[in-house]
Design a protein around this nucleic acid. Sequence first.
DNA 1: CAAATAGTGTCTTTGAGACAATATATC
DNA 2: GATATATTGTCTCAAAGACACTATTTG
Lengths: 233, 233
Amino acid sequence: MTAGMAAPGFPAPIVTADMVILALRDGTLNVLLIQRAAPPFAQNWALPGGFIHADEDADIEAAARRILKDKTGVDSPYLEQVQTVGNGTRDPRGWTVSIVYMALIAADSAALASGANAADVKWWALQGAPPLPGLAFDHTEILAACVKRLRNKVEYTTLPVHLLPARFTLPDLQALYERILDRKMDKSAFRKRMAEANFLEPVMGEKRAASNRPAQIYRLRDGCATIFFDRTM
Amino acid sequence: MTAGMAAPGFPAPIVTADMVILALRDGTLNVLLIQRAAPPFAQNWALPGGFIHADEDADIEAAARRILKDKTGVDSPYLEQVQTVGNGTRDPRGWTVSIVYMALIAADSAALASGANAADVKWWALQGAPPLPGLAFDHTEILAACVKRLRNKVEYTTLPVHLLPARFTLPDLQALYERILDRKMDKSAFRKRMAEANFLEPVMGEKRAASNRPAQIYRLRDGCATIFFDRTM
DNA sequence: CAAATAGTGTCTTTGAGACAATATATC
DNA sequence: GATATATTGTCTCAAAGACACTATTTG
């Protein structure tokens, strides 16, 4: 904030928080969309979002968490502020500002709920079978920017772990990296990377069932946030 | 944007754009601060900023450019949206949202102007002699986050060129990297990096005066935005 | 030519990737 | 044991850093 007096002489823009909620379903990235119940863009699919409640939300991130919880029931996801867009043309009602957050959650932790203002809530695969519909407002561009950011960060961080359930194997994790980056990676080099990042710990005694050698199960080490690698993948 | 009706039933938060304007003066990073003329925080130093003019600014970035131009006269800097902060406590007047931009400019291109709402405008060194004053609002934290982001990006991008004048030498550039990152770098490796990034072109025939071998002068190649290295510095 | 800094070349070490070998389950 | 995948080890190659050498200017 800065310059001025109490309230500016012109109307303040409307401020909303919009969520790009991503999860892994059947091995592919999915985004959570809502079908709008009211105009503008009624019936259109859009990113979940909502106004900031000055009396209820302590800060912007709290608003983002509230919206996420409303739609998915998920409480503590990986949450990251991605960008803020604002102009006079993106919403027919006038100058609006949207603060965009990306949330990564484990698909099995979500329990969808439409709630107010939404006719429907659904997961959509980012690629493949039912192509993504055109979205309301500038949400198509916002989503694209978000996914681009995710792909970029996956190159040099441990972000993908947040898309897996709490317990997972190294082959699971490698397959996920390969899915998101759309290229094969060397098993040996991948494991060396993960080992030196030192953010996983084996869950002793547990294995995974199959007709072959079972894989060690891991979980995030306590207090390990996202790790940045020294080098890119 | 998203959910709802025409206008929310609660007052919209005030929205401002705040600028972290950085330049290199006497070899050290400086930030441009204004001294506030009006309450709250009258007399305190703060980041330049201002309300978004819905009728005048096409979008948020245009507002940021307008503020920058007002204070420095600079037209086309490196400009990057850094973060958006918003809560009910950062401004005594109520819930506010601030969209923070970082601008990198060449010191020689700026012509400071106080303009409205500012008693004074001044460059402050980030480190050294006159220590930075405590800033109004949460601007101290915002500035710190910005500088952290800059240092981080300098590790893997060509960002620092925007702090130099249009024509500069490789030793100039290396010294700047070393200043910002606060460590010595190998001349040979540094030059290899810059060469393979392929974003500079030599200005033929020109050299630099001194009592030693003159350095080749370079400029940014046409159409070269910030380059991301494959590896970190 | 002495001083000072610009610019280049060489050697060593590190780390990533390719690929092979070994380990451990089920059937 | 046959099969399938997990996990580890080895070899090769390329890039980064350390460091030394050459180049070019002024006084």
